[in-house]
């Protein structure tokens, strides 16, 4: 029997000031549903709360109000271990700032995102898919920004998560690498993955059946899917 309930739901989600920001609330009254297998793009100007929303949905930033439900479970009401387990096995997160471990090579960084046995060989396969086969043994400092971004995406996909939250996954990429990333995301989505992308990339956003806008921490009306 197919489960038709939404996989990820944000209800009246709010977040106050972030520790290193001085302006208004980062999120206010955000309501959002991600259906299983859905592909949604989130756009908005800098500082509008896109990344904060993504982090809160990813179980990494406790909201000051509202709820995030993952598979009908309140993510922030779960015990730490359960929330970690969801992050580890069912949620993939690609950071805009990559956040690679500096002392691990690309392959080990990707493998770090995969809790299953045989993570190393799967990590190498993932790097190959992203055009990084000859960079697997390089440390992050030996990679270009675009390569690092692809490694970060590979790490987010490593555990074959149900949901992928990606923050500007093509932000630092040249057109060729960008195409590779777009293809990987499409493959992931076609395989049934649920995808929420924060992006400034019009091309990437156009590929999403649903496009959301956020401004000043508030989610605006959804743009209809591109024909």
């Amino acid at each position: 029997m197919v489960d038709s309930s939404p996989l990820l739901v944000a209800s009246d989600l709010g977040h106050g000031y972030l520790p290193d920001r001085g302006q208004g609330p980062a999120l206010e009254g955000v309501n959002l549903e991600l259906q299983r297998g859905e592909f949604v793009a989130l756009c908005g100007p800098s500082g509008s709360g896109k990344s904060t929303l993504l982090l809160a949905l990813g179980g990494m930033l406790t909201p000051t109000s509202g709820q995030v439900r993952f598979d009908d479970r309140d993510l922030y009401a779960l015990a730490g271990g359960e929330r970690r387990s969801i992050r580890r096995e069912r949620l993939g997160f690609a950071f805009q700032s990559m956040h690679l471990i500096p002392y691990l090579n690309a392959q080990a960084n990707v493998a770090l995102g995969d809790p299953r046995a045989g993570a190393g060989s799967r990590a190498l396969k993932r790097l190959v898919e992203l055009g990084l086969e000859d960079r697997a043994s390089h440390l992050p400092e030996q990679l270009s920004a675009g390569e690092r971004q692809r490694v970060a995406l590979a790490r987010a996909l490593a555990a074959e998560p149900q949901v992928l939250l990606a923050d500007e996954p093509t932000g630092n990429l040249d057109p060729e690498s960008s195409a590779l990333v777009c293809r990987q995301l499409a493959v992931y989505h076609e395989a049934g993955g649920t995808l929420l992308l924060v992006t400034h990339d019009a091309e990437l956003a156009r590929g999403a059946p649903r496009l959301l806008h956020i401004a000043a921490g508030r989610l605006m009306g959804a743009t209809p899917a591109t024909p």
């Binding site: 990494m60 970690r84 770090l112 995102g113 809790p115 790490r155």
Partner: peptide, 14 residues
Amino acid sequence: REELGVYGALGHSP
């Protein structure tokens, strides 16, 4: 701290 954050974000146990 950043490294700690990465391990935490990836769901590694404390």
